[in-house]
Design a protein around this nucleic acid. Structure first.
Length: 735
RNA sequence: GCUGCCGUGGCUCAGUCGGUAGAGCGCGUCCUUGGUAAGGACGAGGUCCUGGGUUCGAAUCCCAGCGGCAGCUCCA
């Protein structure tokens, strides 16, 4: 007998081997009909699998119906199987890789034997899936010992499954399979009992993916889809996706004239248009005001720095691949020699003298990279003129600069420029510093992933005793700034090092552990929920990251606060302590917004382009009902400008309805409509973008209202930052 | 970087079988002076991404490059 405890607390006994379906049936036929799967002691199981008795205690059993959140994952995973089955029918010889569920649906990675699958094939695949659903065959589970399972997959010709067994599953004694008609797949389950339960599904997109994420491995086709129990839910989901697209910052940025990216300038290099620049300027002032309150000191530093600076900091050559190539300047003698060679004149003696002047040896060890296998060194004199020029350009570099990939080395030089006492600490140096990183072309995306961006950066130099207090203050500053912009839908991540990653070599120490403990302590003290992620730390230290989603559900790191014991060591920074001995300071790197570009992108989507009054590029538009009141409208505009508002006037020969519509579409927060009535009484008809017509009021009253809204930085009608409310499953949410 | 898809007026998109390009919006001019989300007429505007190739002939077919999108990989 197996003892079962139901959610209402009642306990009942069933025959050994009883299935969840049978138990459901004993409760009620309707429950059994609606059942999709079950949860036995917190594990989701198939409806038709016998319930395993637990040691002594009764098994806590819950029957899942389409109303339960867990059911959706089961359905989607099963729908992935249906899709794979349909694809197998239409594309014989397809190799199946992985087919999991996601927060939004499911995908299956496949490798087709012949013609690749394209989106044009979706209708055919969906039709085949529909036919499979109509056939309503059951999902049948069976198990095989691991060696038989391997042979079975091998017989099926599924080499990815075989490899998966060999590399990861071989330690399990028994592996489970699911059979659905002619289709069998290695799978842990659970599944819906029958294809008949699958109802509303849609294939969404297709993209490349690597087998087990390895870029050197074969490229698979990943086919995305989603599924719901109810067609209405599917339609609602699809229309939500459509809505989300309308909020895409790339689309809104173009429509509202906020920014542009020109291939002539370069991919990932953002051009801020006047309206976008206004918003950025307001944001920067907002942040600066907060920084001053917290004792930060503004600094400015250049966009480039000598290569030696980054060699000391460790940024170069670690991150050589993600940096723009260095700027190499030849010495005068080397330049003269190149000129000489290119002019074709110059005897050996002249060349030898210039080589000496330039400090270039006459023979060099051959670089390993282009070693052709023969000689281990190359001599200047063995080369033809073109080769000699190349040689000189390679060896005659007097100075080498790097576009800065980070601001910290520059700020460190400011700290190090004068002797520091413990009394001076903490020193907090802040700058909107522009940095350049050569991101892979496939990574670039609107404003959220770019190659040149400005961080709202600052570096704090403090004593060990001050670390926790300063770290906490920076966390609070970040939260304050984000909250001021109405951004609260983020999660926090404690990014730790990964001991097995070469990037953190030398990180295996007491200081790293202490730094991670410090951050954890502050987060706990502030009662902030967070999750921890290994391998996400910067190479110089662990960090606390603020992560938000964009309108299509992608997650981005915005604000970050990082603790650093490494760079002060590398740069041998010190301050004089109370004991009159030198001590090493600790650094905190922090950027509440992260980068202006990415933050702006997220903010556009957050407000769906409808910026609050204090941020809006054009805050107020005066709409004259007709030309007859144009002069009065002009007077109203002047008063607004006097009060420091960004206002404009619409004097087109259009009807008032058209002017309102256009202002509305341009997302102008406030419209002041003026006609004969208003001109007569010195009033304005106040129209709010969100709340509509507010009626007439005196111009003074309107200005008063506007000033209040601006001063208090009122943030209203914030659109949910996530377009995906039905999020569930594997995603972790700290909130 | 990899895989797939895409590239036509400022924007969104049509464009048949290979035969020198079209709509709506926007823009300009004129008419209209209208009270809370689109008044009317006329007009301008195109190197069909770039470069090769096939062809009597290419927006259309092929190749390469550039750019974009989705995903993967990466992200100090």
């Amino acid at each position: 007998m197996v003892a079962i405890r139901l959610p209402d607390g009642t306990e009942r006994e069933f025959e050994e081997g009883a299935t969840a379906r049978e138990i459901a049936a004993s409760i009620g036929t309707r429950l059994a009909q609606a059942a999709v799967a079950a949860v036995a002691n917190d594990v989701v199981v198939d409806l038709d699998r016998p319930i395993e008795p637990a040691n002594d205690a009764p098994v806590a059993l819950r029957i899942l119906t389409p109303k339960d959140r867990e059911s959706l994952d089961v359905l989607r995973h099963s729908t992935a199987h249906l899709m794979a089955r349909a694809i197998m029918r239409l594309y014989p010889g397809v190799q199946l890789a992985f087919g999991p569920t996601t927060a939004q649906g499911f995908y299956y990675d496949v490798l087709s034997a012949g013609r690749p699958i394209s989106e044009a094939d979706f209708p055919a695949i969906e039709a085949e899936m529909a036919a499979i659903v109509r056939a309503a065959e059951p999902f049948e589970r069976f198990s095989l010992p691991v060696d038989q399972a391997r042979a079975f997959c091998s017989d099926l010709g599924q080499k990815f499954k075989v490899e998966h067994i060999d590399t990861e599953l071989h330690q399990y004694g028994v592996l489970s399979f699911y059979r659905q008609g002619e289709f069998v797949d290695l799978c842990r389950g659970p599944h819906i009992p029958s294809a008949a339960k699958a109802g509303a599904f849609k294939l969404l997109s297709i993209a490349g993916a690597y087998w087990k994420g390895r870029a050197d491995g074969p490229t698979l086709q990943r086919i995305y889809g989603t599924a719901f129990f109810d067609k209405k839910e599917l339609d609602a989901h699809l229309s939500r996706l459509e809505e989300a697209k309308k909020r895409d910052h790339r689309k809104l940025g173009k429509e509202l004239g906020l920014f542009t990216i020109s291939p002539m300038v370069g991919s990932g290099l953002v051009l801020w248009m006047p309206k976008g620049a206004i918003i950025r300027g307001v944001l920067e002032s907002f942040v600066k005001d907060e920084l001053i309150k917290d004792g930060y000191q503004p600094v400015y530093t250049p966009h480039i720095g000598k290569i030696e600076l980054y060699q000391t900091s460790g940024h170069y050559p670690y991150y050589k691949d993600s940096q723009f190539p260095t700027l190499r300047l030849l010495s005068d003698a080397a330049l003269a020699l190149v000129e000489l060679l290119e002019s074709g004149s110059g005897d050996d003696a002249a060349q030898r003298k210039l080589l000496t002047d330039a400090g270039i040896p006459e023979s060099m060890p051959r670089p390993v990279a282009d070693a052709t296998g023969e000689s281990a060194s190359e001599s200047y004199w063995d080369l033809n003129p073109a080769g000699r020029v190349e040689y000189v350009e390679r060896c005659g570099v007097a100075e080498e600069y790097l576009l800065k990939p980070m601001n910290c080395p520059h700020h460190i030089q400011i700290f190090a420029a004068q002797p520091r006492s413990y009394r001076d600490l903490p020193v907090r140096l802040a700058e909107f510093g522009t940095v350049y990183r050569y991101e892979q072309s496939g990574e670039l995306s609107g404003l959220t992933r770019v190659r040149g961006f400005t961080q709202d950066d600052a570096h704090l130099f403090c004593t060990e005793d001050q670390v926790r207090g300063e770290f906490r203050a920076t966390m609070e500053l970040t939260r304050r700034i984000l909250a001021g912009l109405g951004l609260t839908d983020y999660r926090l991540r404690l990014s730790k090092h990964d001991p097995s990653d070469a990037k953190y070599q030398g990180a295996a120490g007491e200081t790293w552990r202490r730094a991670e403990d410090d951050i954890r302590a502050v987060l706990d003290e502030m009662r902030l929920p967070y999750d921890e992620a290994s391998g996400e730390a910067a190479f110089y230290g662990p960090k606390a990251d603020f992560i938000v989603r964009d309108c299509i559900g992608r997650q981005w790191q915005l604000g970050t606060v990082q603790l650093d014991y490494v760079l002060p060591e590398r740069f041998k920074l010190d301050y004089t302590g109370a004991d009159n001995h030198p001590h090493r300071p600790v650094m905190i790197h922090r950027a509440p917004l992260g980068s202006m570009e990415r933050f702006f992108g997220i903010l556009i989507e957050h407000f769906a382009g409808a910026f609050p009054l204090w941020l809006a590029p054009e805050q107020i538009r005066v709409l004259s009902v007709s030309d007859k009141t144009a002069d009065y409208a002009r007077g109203v505009l002047d008063r607004l400008l006097e009060h420091g508002f960004r206002a404009a006037i619409d004097h087109r020969a259009e009807k008032i309805g058209a002017k309102i519509r256009d202002a509305q579409l341009e997302k102008i927060p406030v419209m002041l409509v003026v006609g004969a009535k208003e001109a007569e009484s010195g009033s304005v008809a106040y129209r709010d973008r969100h709340d509509g017509d507010q009626g007439s009021m005196s111009l003074e009253a309107a200005i008063e209202r506007l000033e209040t809204e601006r001063r208090e930085r009122v943030v209203r009608h914030v659109v949910e930052a996530s377009a995906t409310p039905e999020d569930h499953g594997s995603e972790q949410h700290a909130y």
